[in-house]
């Protein structure tokens, strides 16, 4: 990797500049890391140690009590079951919502990019606009619609909402990816006798792994981290983990158990952090895909 704008290679005078640069970069790294560090250390301390000690000090005696409480018995409001049931709610709603919205996005993107018909571009523009609306504008009618459909306060209801408002982005991702594949490929396959589905299955699907990763990771992060839909359309028992976390942290009864709050926050953040750690490349690509035009 050569970079013509890089400062000229270190000589005595430049060496100081080099170290200064390095120091600044590391200082910023600490700025981003400290909240995570504080969360982890706090979650491993006892409440007494927290009250006596220092925010950034390492725990004197490590205890996992807070983690146990956060997982299985922390109270949100009147219920004291910890995050566990809500964590599974999030899993149960995220998995189908990600799968369905990705599938629809793949089909839509394939059609819009490779099987253009009159009006397809208009439909795409309409979908694209849908990505950018503030969701507050659909909260009220959606609440009523879910009621009418009998899905109010249920996990399938939340899946439905996430799929509907995820289609715009998944379609955008796949469309922008498939549009870079030459149309001649479809023509050649048509002459070879393959139809719509055969062409997708044999030619496009094998090419789709990168964009599939990007889309799945994007949707997973969005839906797992969602709070607005979760808090608006769930009820006691069906809340996703983000809502439960907020309830535990802001529950007014009893003493504030900071160590439990931090453990709960880490538990809620763990799945997306894990995905970021193992597939960060695709996560970044998803983030920038929406902004850098395809």
């Amino acid at each position: 990797m050569t970079n013509p704008t890089a400062f000229i290679a270190p000589r005595t005078g430049k060496l100081i500049m080099r170290w200064l640069l390095f120091a600044i970069l590391v200082a910023f790294a600490l700025f981003y890391l400290i909240p995570l560090f504080v969360m982890i250390t706090t979650s491993l301390k006892s409440l007494d140690e927290i009250r006596a000690g220092n925010l950034v000090a390492l725990p004197v005696s490590v205890t996992f009590d807070a983690w146990r409480t956060a997982w299985a018995s922390a109270c949100s409001g009147i219920q004291c079951e910890g995050l566990r049931p809500y964590f599974w709610n999030s899993v149960l709603l995220t998995v189908p919502a990600v799968a369905i919205s990705t599938l629809l996005g793949a089909v839509n993107g394939y059609v819009i990019a490779q099987w253009k018909f009159r009006g397809a571009n208009l439909i795409f523009s309409l979908m694209l606009f849908g990505c950018f609306i503030p969701f507050q504008v659909v909260l009220l009618p959606m609440a009523r619609t879910l009621g009418i459909l009998g899905l109010a306060g249920t996990i399938p209801g939340l899946v439905f909402v996430h799929v509907i408002y995820g289609i715009g982005f998944t379609t955008l991702f796949f469309r922008n990816y498939y549009v870079t594949i030459p149309v001649e490929l479809v023509k050649a396959a048509k002459v070879d006798g393959a139809g719509f589905f055969r062409i997708y299955w044999s030619i496009f699907l094998p090419l789709s792994l990168p964009i599939l990763m990007v889309t799945v990771i994007w949707q997973f992060t969005q839906i797992w981290n969602d709070f607005l839909f979760g808090v608006s359309f769930s009820q006691a028992g069906t809340q996703p983990v983000t809502v439960a976390l907020n309830n535990i942290v802001n529950s007014t009864t009893g003493v504030k158990e900071y160590n439990v709050n931090m453990a709960a926050a880490i538990i809620a953040a763990f799945p997306t952090l894990f995905v970021y750690a193992v597939a960060g490349k695709y996560f970044i690509r998803g983030l920038t895909a929406g902004s850098v035009k395809g």
Partner: peptide, 26 residues
């Protein structure tokens, strides 16, 4: 990787964490 990881977090987690860091008592 370090600079970008907060983007993978839920804003609820971010809020919880900073609420603790910025609370005056501790």
């Amino acid at each position: 990787t370090i600079y970008l990881y907060p983007m993978a977090l839920s804003m609820i987690v971010t809020g919880t964490s900073w609420k603790w860091i910025m609370n005056p008592g501790l």
